[in-house]
Design a protein around this nucleic acid. Structure first.
Length: 457
RNA sequence: GCCCCCAUCGUCUAGCGGUUUAGGACGACGCCUUCUCAAGGCGUAGAUCUCCGGUUCGAAUCCGGAUGGGGGUACCA
């Protein structure tokens, strides 16, 4: 058996890598690794109307940030380059023409207006809004002439009316569709770009993809792909459809209802390993019920057939818990570096290190570092503390000595309460690291960096 | 409308015909610990396994139907 090759084929039509794509990428990557195969990226940028500039770079960057490496891709090349469909137009055109020659496809000259009207009529009659095959009846010599004359055309696949198309889904079993219900799908658009259907089939074959693992939203177009493979006379790769991630209201995960871009999770301070771990549990459970596991552990136990068929709800609460779990179990040196970078070096490393022991157990995301540590770094707004403190704070250098003196002078035995008052002034909360330990920590540093608090708190 | 997929605690799931009074995790709640909050430990509540038929000595587990949810139905992917 040939080496396992999997892929994800994102389209640069969004802001960034969709978390759902990250999920299928993870599964494809893990599966490939589990079989000593390769996982590759192919960018499907065939819809120029929805193309978002910079999206491809961001998708690739997010994949790298997540730690899902690919063996071949648009930026790193590979034996089947280019890996960007917009750069392979001649290949699709050649294949589409090949199908026309074999009478498995035909030229269509219908205008969008006619198509629109036709579909409306069909729907009014409660019939499936499929192409009526008008151009299929045109004599092939005649249509060739029209094409040569420069008339605008599209190439549609010629789906037989009889029979059924069956395919075997590795995780769902056999799925069949009556051919009569399969539309004469456009495979080459009038702008010379292929549609998804032609693009994937041709490229998956050329790039020797052995396993197609993608979201379940593709199930209904799979018979078209199967037909295309047959038309070309190619072997069909193994196919598996994983469930789509959902919003809490059970609809397909969407940006209107949930953060969907990987960059959003990064900005909120989620760790790549935690995200991957959580994503993994969305459809697969570790033998023995272990919740926390690494990608390597997953690779050693993963089996495609064990993937869950039910579409899971993406539960941010559990992700947060898991993220906290990863933060707590991380080496403090590493955590420090991550926080240092996360805040763009805003806080000195040494000081993060000093303060961190008091916070690790309280942080669920990196972004919570600032909320929790604010007390150490942010000067409280003067108007928020009682008047006795104000003057003292005014002159204070805000180091441990000054602070302790201030507290002792003003509050005496009530040091703790005063301390609490300062914390509330800064964070707006009474909760946080223990006060006495905080005081000690403050004492360790000559002077912590003070960032003026925003006015008006 | 039509086609397809799916169905176990609120959520993620274990379960693959008897070992199940259906197990674990998140979340919730309570107690312990404690300078608050966490973390940690211990515990509680929470699922007539969507429903109805069938197969079987026996079904959450197999089959059929219903219902519900989701996806698709484009010169978008």
């Amino acid at each position: 058996m040939s080496a396992v090759r999997t892929r994800i084929a994102p389209s640069p039509t969004g802001q960034d890598l969709h978390i759902g794509n990250a999920y299928t990428a993870l599964i494809n990557y893990v599966f490939a690794r589990a079989h000593n195969g390769q996982f590759i990226i192919r960018v499907e940028d065939t819809d120029r109307t929805r193309l978002v500039t910079g999206a491809e770079d961001r998708i690739l960057a997010s994949l790298r940030w997540l730690g899902i490496p690919y063996a071949e891709g648009p930026d790193i090349g590979g034996p089947f380059a280019p890996y960007r469909q917009s750069e392979r137009l001649d290949i699709y055109k050649k294949h589409a023409e090949e199908l026309v020659a074999k009478n498995h496809a035909y030229y269509c000259f219908c205008t969008p207006q006619r198509l629109d009207q036709m579909r409306k009529d069909l729907e009014a009659k409660h019939l499936p809004p499929m192409y009526d095959g008008l151009c299929k009846k045109i004599d092939s010599k005649k249509s060739k002439k029209r094409v040569a004359a420069g008339e605008k055309y599209v190439i549609r696949m010629n789906v037989p009316d009889e029979g059924t198309t069956i395919f075997h889904d590795v995780i769902r079993g056999d799925i069949s569709f009556a051919n009569i219900l399969i539309d004469d799908q456009v495979i080459l658009k009038s702008d010379g770009f292929p549609t998804y259907h032609l693009g994937v089939v041709v490229d998956d074959h050329i790039m020797k993809i052995t396993h197609i693992i993608r979201g379940e939203e593709w199930i209904s177009s799979t018979p078209k792909h199967i037909l295309l493979y047959k038309f070309f006379g190619w072997d069909v790769p193994l196919i598996a459809h994983v469930s789509v991630l959902r919003n809490p209201d059970r609809t397909k995960l969407s940006k209107r209802k949930n953060p969907v871009w990987v960059s959003e999770y990064k900005a909120k301070g989620f760790l790549p390993d935690a995200i991957k771990n959580y994503l993994a549990t969305m459809a697969w459970s570790y033998p023995g019920g272990q919740d926390i596991f690494s990608v390597d552990e997953m690779i050693s136990k993963f089996r495609l057939e064990d993937i869950q068929t039910t579409a899971p709800i993406f539960d941010t609460e559990k992700l947060r818990w898991m993220n906290g779990e990863y933060i707590r179990h991380m080496k403090s040196e590493k955590l420090k570096n991550i926080i240092y970078e996360f805040y763009n070096k805003k806080y000195p490393e040494k000081q993060i290190e000093t303060v961190l022991p008091l916070l690790v157990e309280r942080m669920k995301t990196l972004a919570e570092f600032e909320t929790l540590a604010g007390f150490f770094f942010v000067r409280p707004p003067k108007h928020a503390v009682r008047s006795e403190l104000r003057t003292a704070l005014e002159s204070s250098e805000w180091n441990h000595d000054a602070m302790e003196k201030t507290i002792r002078d003003v509050a005496g035995a009530n040091a703790k309460e005063i301390f609490m008052e300062l914390r509330v002034a800064v964070t707006g909360k009474t909760v946080g690291p223990p006060l006495l330990e905080s005081l000690e920590i403050l004492g360790k540093e000559e002077t912590l960096t003070r960032i003026p608090s925003s006015a008006g708190r």
